[in-house]
Amino acid sequence: KKKIKIYIENENGEKKTIEIEVEGDIDEIAKELAKKYNVKIVKIEP
């Protein structure tokens, strides 16, 4: 498992940072999160 930080922006332009532990393809997981929460991924840090 890797701990990563995902910087997101919602439709109101509010920026947030999510810190999660992931296993597998980080890009795939980030895309799923973006779709699920309707946010834009700004940056992903390993």
Rank of each mutant, 00 (worst) to 15 (best):
K1Y: 10
K2W: 14
K2T: 11
K3T: 09
I4Y: 15
I4A: 07
K5S: 06
I6E: 00
I6A: 02
Y7A: 03
Y7N: 02
Y7D: 03
Y7P: 00
Y7M: 09
I8V: 14
I8F: 15
E9I: 14
E9R: 05
N10A: 13
N10T: 15
E11L: 10
E11S: 13
N12S: 12
N12K: 13
N12I: 10
G13W: 02
G13Q: 03
G13N: 04
E14N: 07
E14P: 02
K15Q: 15
K16Y: 15
T17A: 05
I18W: 15
I18S: 00
I18K: 01
I18L: 12
I18Q: 01
I18M: 09
E19R: 03
E19H: 08
E19C: 07
I20P: 00
I20W: 07
E21Y: 13
V22K: 01
V22I: 12
V22P: 03
E23C: 09
E23F: 11
E23I: 12
D25A: 05
D25R: 04
D25Q: 04
I26S: 05
D27T: 11
D27V: 11
D27Q: 12
D27A: 09
E28T: 11
E28Y: 10
E28K: 11
K31S: 11
E32V: 09
E32Y: 13
E32R: 13
E32H: 10
A34L: 04
A34V: 09
K35Q: 13
K35A: 09
K35D: 07
K36T: 08
K36E: 06
K36V: 07
Y37D: 02
Y37T: 03
Y37P: 02
Y37V: 02
Y37A: 03
N38A: 08
N38D: 04
V39I: 13
V39P: 00
V39L: 08
V39T: 04
K40L: 10
K40N: 05
K40S: 10
I41L: 05
I41M: 02
I41E: 02
I41G: 01
I41A: 04
V42K: 05
V42R: 01
V42M: 09
K43S: 12
K43M: 11
I44D: 01
I44N: 01
I44K: 02
I44Y: 06
E45P: 02
P46M: 15
P46V: 15
P46N: 13
P46F: 15
P46Y: 15
